[in-house]
Computed example of a mutant assay.
Amino acid sequence: MTIWVNEQRDACGILQACIATKNKAMAEDCHKNWETELTTEQRQEGWQVILKTVDSWDEVPVNALKLN
């Protein structure tokens, strides 16, 4: 099973938002949206939007919004 995990991390590397889903298209749309929504200031400070995959719900951060 592949689970797509979108993470938005601030300049300190702290997870600010996380959405996980088994739907690849939904995950990619979310990632593009988050990339677009980062402000110039956030980018300069080092904010990151990361899209990754994991094999188990146990690997998804606890505070993630989980969409099936």
Rank of each mutant, 00 (worst) to 15 (best):
L15T: 03
W47I: 01
Q44I: 12
L38Y: 00
C30V: 09
K32Y: 07
C18I: 04
G46A: 05
I19V: 15
D29H: 12
N33D: 10
K32P: 04
K24L: 02
M26G: 11
Q44Y: 07
C30F: 07
L15A: 06
T21D: 01
E35G: 06
K22V: 05
Q48S: 03
N6H: 07
K24W: 08
G13S: 04
E7I: 03
W4G: 02
R43H: 01
T40D: 13
T40V: 14
A27D: 04
E41R: 07
I19A: 14
R9W: 08
L38Q: 08
Q48N: 12
D10P: 03
Q48E: 10
V5Q: 07
E28F: 02
I14K: 14
C30E: 01
G46H: 05
L38R: 07
V5C: 07
E45Q: 14
Q16N: 00
I14E: 14
A11W: 05
A25M: 00
W47G: 03
Q42K: 10
N33C: 09
T39N: 02
G46R: 03
C12N: 14
D10Q: 12
E41F: 07
D10H: 03
K22W: 11
G46T: 00
E41Q: 10
A25L: 04
Q44L: 12
N23G: 09
C30I: 04
G46Y: 06
Q16C: 12
K24Q: 14
C12G: 15
Q44K: 12
R43L: 15
V5K: 02
A25P: 02
V49Q: 05
C12I: 13
K22Q: 14
I50Q: 09
E28S: 11
H31V: 00
K22M: 02
A20Q: 06
K24M: 06
E45V: 03
L38E: 10
A17M: 14
K52I: 08
Q16L: 13
W47A: 05
E28V: 14
W34L: 07
E45C: 13
D29V: 00
C30M: 08
N23T: 03
N6S: 14
N6Y: 09
E41H: 08
A27C: 04
W34K: 04
I14G: 12
E35I: 04
Q16H: 06
W47F: 14
I50N: 07
T53Y: 05
K32I: 11
E45F: 09
Q16P: 00
